[in-house]
Design a protein around this nucleic acid. Structure first.
Lengths: 125, 125
DNA sequence: AATGAAAGTAGTAATGATTACTACTTAAGG
DNA sequence: CCTTAAGTAGTAATCATTACTACTTTCATT
């Protein structure tokens, strides 16, 4: 992978984000530093970085993508009420994985499964 | 809801399908009976029927929708390898639901969570 | 330093599933 | 029968993402 200023700024933007940004959101931030960057460039580089395993690309239940620092100690949970993604330490999933496997026989890929429901905060309201 | 021939045929098509068809697939089947039906009509009626709880609308991990007979005794599992949705009897999920709730504190809505992984068939290959 | 091919870019057009819009048509209750 | 609310066909719009194209940059090798 050849160096490019654009990819460098895009990567740093993702790494310093803590709210699972969309490509569009990253584009808006990067634009402040490289005003004439193309949205296509943002998409291309996000995909390239994700493919290289440098960042994580997560698919929302509506099919859209969000990007994240590569910290594979977290899984994702989407709250229908507050419309936000929550991180769940994957230690919680260690045996859930095998329980599901025992129950249904299928090998659940826990990293691709976006859990959907109501988060603690919203439950208390 | 007023009667319409179009909705009637659409409903029967879904009820007699056993492979979680897309709106487009339903459209193609219905066209044989009502050749000049509009794709928009198919979408509108599928959504209306789903809203009324007469059929089920399930969202794929890529955001697209598929439709299904209303049999809420099944949950859905998507196999990444053979690209198909498998039904899982929801009896299998009874205690998985509470285990997850205990572990992560969040209330998983098991009917909205599309489990992703490799199915039995593909595992054996 | 000069160079040349491969990789990258900006800007724009295309894609594909779904929804919105508009003028016309039908169901069905009084 | 007639009215009107609901439904329809056909087409245009939407929105996130990808593809295309002509130009530019990186970087290993002279």
């Amino acid at each position: 992978m050849k160096y490019s200023k654009q990819r460098d700024v895009i990567l740093n933007t993702v790494l310093s984000s803590y709210n699972h940004p969309t490509a569009e959101e990253i584009y808006e931030i990067v634009r402040k530093e490289i005003p004439n960057i193309s949205l296509g460039t943002v998409y291309r580089n996000l995909n390239k970085l994700a493919e290289a395993g440098i960042i994580k690309k997560i698919q929302m239940s509506n099919g859209n993508f969000r990007f994240d620092r590569q910290e594979d100690t977290y899984n994702h949970f989407y709250c229908k009420q507050c419309d936000q993604i929550h991180d769940i330490p994957s230690s919680n999933f260690k045996d859930i994985n095998t329980i599901i496997k025992d129950k249904i026989g299928y090998e659940i890929d826990i990293f691709d499964t976006m859990f959907v429901g109501i988060c603690k905060n919203c439950q208390n309201k």
